[in-house]
Design a protein around this nucleic acid. Sequence first.
DNA 1: GCAAATTCCTGCATAGGTGTATTAACGTCA
DNA 2: TGACGTTAATACACCTATGCAGGAATTTGC
Lengths: 209, 209
Amino acid sequence: MPAKTRARQRAPHLGPERRRPQVLDAALAIAVRDGIGAVTVGAVAAEMDVTRPVVYACFSDRVDMVEALLDRESAALLEAVLDALRGSGTTLEPEQAFTEGFRSLLAAAATRPDSWHLLLTGEPDPALSERFRAARTLVQAQATAWIGPAMVRWWNTPELGRKLPVLIEFFMSSCEAAVRSLLDDGNDWGPDELGEFVGSAVHRAFRDA
Amino acid sequence: MPAKTRARQRAPHLGPERRRPQVLDAALAIAVRDGIGAVTVGAVAAEMDVTRPVVYACFSDRVDMVEALLDRESAALLEAVLDALRGSGTTLEPEQAFTEGFRSLLAAAATRPDSWHLLLTGEPDPALSERFRAARTLVQAQATAWIGPAMVRWWNTPELGRKLPVLIEFFMSSCEAAVRSLLDDGNDWGPDELGEFVGSAVHRAFRDA
DNA sequence: GCAAATTCCTGCATAGGTGTATTAACGTCA
DNA sequence: TGACGTTAATACACCTATGCAGGAATTTGC
């Protein structure tokens, strides 16, 4: 026997079209396991038991590949977050708005934990930090556009123009903390009760700001 | 003319002992400017207008160098944070405890913004993430040891054992958000008033948890 | 002022990553 | 079944970073 027992000496002929999703799956697995810095073309190829040119047939570039990954993973999350923000706008009670918002945020997080892990802990690569920043900035802008007017309507908070940036930063961090708690190993909270708990806490912080 | 006008063809003989702090300063500058992933031996050497072997004379290793940087930068910060936690424990009023704590936290942050920047946005390197995690874990443990008993004393919060991990995660994120707000470019808050504002908000969130 | 030790620079070997051209195997369709 | 186009592997050139020699310059001590 000339070499170690290889499962298959040659991978099946699937073509770039059918390999693309496999490449992104492998890249996500590596990013979650070893950090996004470990997502190299070689690592992805090894993860799917294939050689590097196969990956290059799917994406022109390493950056192109990771951008595709971020696009795919962030699309679902972004939609979930924006839904959470919009959905809770219709609710009349302020506290319910927050708790419902956090509830649906956490429900979305529980559905695709790997995607959340990626977007929360990512950004080691200077060539891609722009894209992370952009995703976060978009959510932040949406949050500002929703929370600002709501606070005027509900509590007519004084000096809101000055306070709002700080409160938004606070809000974003609270969302991250909530998701982190939910995805934590020793966690025994369900998305619903955790959403209510955190949402209500954030509500109290904002109400008398 | 054989080459471009070089300021000094040969750097002065200082020796490893006097170069060590210079190396760390250069490393910090690079980390803040381009991220910690850009802190390579070559980059540090170029930053201080010296060749790589000079850096290797000070630190055996790239990891050794960055660990020394983290040690130096985190030492002052850790002390400041622990002081903030302990100092606010003597205060009797709960709300004052939070506002005072955040005030001294932000005062420390304002003194060494680069260090904070490093520890908040760092961790791209798998070989060093352990150290980042350790620093954060230590602060987290201290926060837990302080906040847990205090909440029992002040409000006798029910089901605290289950809630505390979530609240601590929430608290840590709030600290990060506060520091981020303070270090933000368009920020017009001083450490004191921002500390009071955020501390009071966090207090309301915790009081009725 | 001059030797000697210290300090710095030039250059090299190694390792790992990128991106591409060439070659060999697979699949498919006639 | 057999030929042809598609697909994957091998192999290469290049780059950047690491870590380590040996030779040149500067301090320092006498």
